[in-house]
Amino acid sequence: MTKNILAVNNISKNFGKFKAIDNVSFSLQKGDIYGLIGSNGAGKTTIMRLITQLSPLKVGTISLFDKSINQQALRHVGSVIETPAAFDKLTVKQNLKLIAIQRGINNQDKVKQIIKFVGLTKKVNTKAKNLSLGQKQRLGLAIAILPEPDLLILDEPINGLDPSGIIEFRSLLLKLNQEKQITILISSHILTELYQVSTRFGFIYNGRLIKEITKEELDKVNRSGLLVTVDNVAKAAQIIDTEFQNKFTVIDDQRLLIHSLDIDSSELNKHLVMNNVSVISMTKQERSLEDYYTNLIGGQENA
C-alpha cells in the first residue's frame, strides 16, 4: 500500500480580497518527486508556506504522514522556502552545527558528511554572508536535509545556480530521493530541470491546481520517447517487453514508441538485431514540459 506523506485537501487562502489559493487538493506518496509548476504569483510558494505553517491555514486541511499537521509532524520536514535562511555571521559549519543542536543530532560526523554531500567542503569556514547565491542554495539544502527529513520542500532551489551547479543539484536531489527515500515537493521556473527530476507534476494557475499528471502520462501525451522503425513490429514489441521492461505503444505495423528517453538505444539496437529484427531507424521524439505547460496555460487563458 502506498503511504501518504502529504495530503492537501481543499485549501484556500485569501490576502484581503485577493484569492491566492483556491480550493487546492493534491497528495504525495512516498518516493514521489512532485513538481509544482506555475507562473510568478500563481500560488506555489503560498502552498509551501501553508504546508510548513509559515502562513496560517484557515480553509481546508493538510495532513502530514496521515496525521493532521502540527509542529511535531514538521520535525520530519526539511524546507527551503523563498530564499535559503542562515545566520550571516556564522560559518557554514557553525550554521549546520546550530541546526544539529536544534534538532537534537549528536553525531558530529553528520555535519561533515552533509557539507561534503552538498559540495561545500571548501567553504566550511566561510561565513554565510560571504557565500555566493549558489553556495547559499547549497547551504539551504544542507540545513534542510541534515535532520534526515521524510519530506523535503524546495521552493525554486535552482535559482542562482550556475550550469554545473544545476547538474550537481539535480543529481543531489535524485540521490536523496533514491538513496534516502526522501519524498520531495519542488517548484522551479526552469521546467527542463523540473522535468528531469520530477515523477509527478501539478500545474498551478491563478491559485488553482488545474492539472496533475505523472511523468509517464506526460511523456505519453507529449508522445515523447524513442520512435523505433523496424521490419517486424510484433517481434520487436516482444523483445522490448521481455528484455527492457519499458512501456511502449505500437503505432503501426512498422513503428513503435518507447515512452522513455532513458533507454539505452545502442543496447536496444543490439538486442533487436541479434533477434533478427531489422532496425530501420531510431529517433528521439521530444515535446517538452514547456510545450505542455504553454498549451495548458494557453487553454486556461482562452477559456
Binding site: 510548513t52 509559515l54 509542529q71 520536514v77 535562511a85 536544534q102
Partner: peptide
Amino acid sequence: SQKTYKNTLVSGITR
C-alpha cells in the same frame, strides 16, 4: 531580520 525563523519553526517547537 535574517529569516532564520523559517528553520527554527519547522524544527518541532511550538510557537
